[in-house]
């Protein structure tokens, strides 16, 4: 496989067993390829599968057919057919994911939430926290908050902590679910700058950007679902 990521003939629907087995179709015969340094911007009305596509690549949504092949540690792995252990390993080393909302864990300080992806790769805690503090600073989270659990932070602060976490460990593939929503102009610009840095370092990005100007400024391709 030449591509970094190759989605072929994807089929995804939901069957709602509790609602008379109602079927909701999301993707049918959907294909996509992505290479190093490329960025794909997703847009379109809600409910059309933008977030679903990211979750499918992340492995938290299970498609019914097709394949999602990704280059992982020098080998090609199909995420749909990988064991849970393999999917976790892909997440640890190959895919970074900025979710829409931060999953807050009680009592874990912001700086450790951000540093966690590096710690999981076995990076020394000092080094991981150093990288985490650089990102928190770049995303203008005041230093006095770093040692506090983000539970009590404002929505915007939580989102920035989440973004810092997503960018902490350099990942070959980055999934971004509306990373600039509800941020002020300065922080939006900082996030776009992080995306550009990741791209020039060779990462491939799939991101949901509702603002067209923003999307065009960082994405080499757009896909309107």
């Amino acid at each position: 496989m030449q591509h970094l990521l190759e989605i072929t003939a994807l089929e995804k629907h939901f069957i709602l067993h509790l609602q008379e087995s109602q079927r909701i179709d999301v993707f049918s015969d959907f294909s996509l390829t992505l290479d190093e340094g490329q960025s794909l911007g997703l847009a379109g009305p809600s409910g059309k599968g933008k977030s679903s596509l990211l979750k499918i690549i992340w492995g938290s949504y299970q498609p019914q057919a097709g394949s999602i092949r990704i280059r992982h540690r020098g080998e090609v792995v199909d995420i749909m057919r990988a064991s849970p252990r393999e999917v976790l390993d892909i997440r640890r080393h190959t895919i970074g994911y900025v979710t829409q909302f931060l999953r807050v864990i009680p009592r874990v300080p912001a700086i450790d939430v951000v540093a966690e992806p590096l710690l999981e790769r076995g990076v020394a805690p000092e080094k991981a926290r150093q990288r985490a503090s650089e990102l928190l600073e770049r995303l203008s989270i005041p230093e006095k908050l770093w040692k506090l659990p983000p539970l009590t932070f404002s929505g915007g602060e939580q989102q920035r902590v989440n973004i810092a976490r997503g960018f902490c460990a350099p990942s070959p593939v980055l999934l971004l679910d509306e990373p600039t929503a509800s941020l002020d102009a300065l922080n939006r610009a900082r996030v776009l700058e992080l995306v550009r840095d990741a791209l020039s370092a060779g990462s491939a990005v799939i991101g949901i950007f509702h603002d067209e100007a923003e999307r065009l400024s960082v994405c080499s391709r757009s896909l309107i679902l």
């Binding site: 939901f14 069957i15 709602l16 509790l18 979750k55 492995g59 938290s60 299970q62 849970p84």
Partner: peptide, 21 residues
């Protein structure tokens, strides 16, 4: 059975959907 986020976010079996909901 599957990854925790997979079972919680996209449960397949009717019974899992009932539990999650």
């Amino acid at each position: 059975q599957g990854l925790t986020d997979q079972v919680l976010e996209d449960p397949q079996a009717a019974y899992s959907q009932l539990l999650v909901s």
